[in-house]
Design a protein around this nucleic acid. Sequence first.
DNA 1: CCCCAGGCACCTC
DNA 2: GAGGTGCATGGG
Length: 306
Amino acid sequence: MKRGTIALEDTGPFDLQSTLESGQSYLWWREDGNDFQDESVFGGNNWYLTTTRERKTPAVIRVRQYDGQLEWESTIDATPILERRLRLTDDLNAIRQKTPTDPLIDTAFEQYWGMRIVRDPPFPSLISFICSAQMHVSRIHEMQQSLREAYGTPVSFHNETYYAYPTPEQLADATEVELRDLSLGYRAPYVKRTAEMVAEGTTPNEAREYPYEDAREHLTQFVGVGDKVADCVLLFALDFLEAVPLDTWIRKTIAEYYPDCDRGNYNETSAAIRERLGPEFAGYTQTYLFHYLRHAGEEAPVGPIQ
DNA sequence: CCCCAGGCACCTC
DNA sequence: GAGGTGCATGGG
């Protein structure tokens, strides 16, 4: 087993907990078993786990934020992967300078300062957000764990067996009945058909070749992917930091705080709210607002103990 | 019993 | 293309 640390002095502000528990990614889980089911329980420097296929063999990564650095343990050298997956090279101060200020945005950024956008691997991101339709955040996590255990390649780590997120081929071999038995509901055929498409060579990565709005349209060719899920994959996996997923929460936010941005349809409302949140990094701003408003009224979370 | 959850496919018109 | 409707599952 390998261990390592990543100093956070040079990365600018970083908050692992907010980054991984803000509903951006369903590909990480918390080691203490909380597993995001009670999101009001914030503990500070928890260990988080994920799997990666960025190297030849699937690997497990365990990481926590402690004493001003990231500590990790893995079956591989996790430093470059964590830098990529957690966007540690984003210049958060520069991003904040390019976003507008209003009372809501200022409060959200202040409350969760250090939260990064994640950079999930595209296929698992695509599948997990197909599963997210009309579903609570905690159950989306559970579904992904079920998919791992049912179809993923086992990886030994810490004398335990973990399961890598299934490949397109592994998921394409699942049956719709099996997937329904994992409580995927009506998303079961969407997952299977999209996995088949990717296994046959149509990959979400192709969207990178297009300008933002065309990229969103391109992703909707996958079954179970509409504008909203496409925006999530663009923002949380494919480096389109201007993408603003228009979900129920951000629609409520628009109705309450930015009513003039509601243009009655997805594309035009998207353009208006992106302009309002700062066109270049609107997705960053949106993610701060989403996390802040979803936890409005709760006690402020305890940040990582530095 | 109701309603809702980080919506989407499918059918009309 | 815009607008309605059915859809699985679990929790409050």
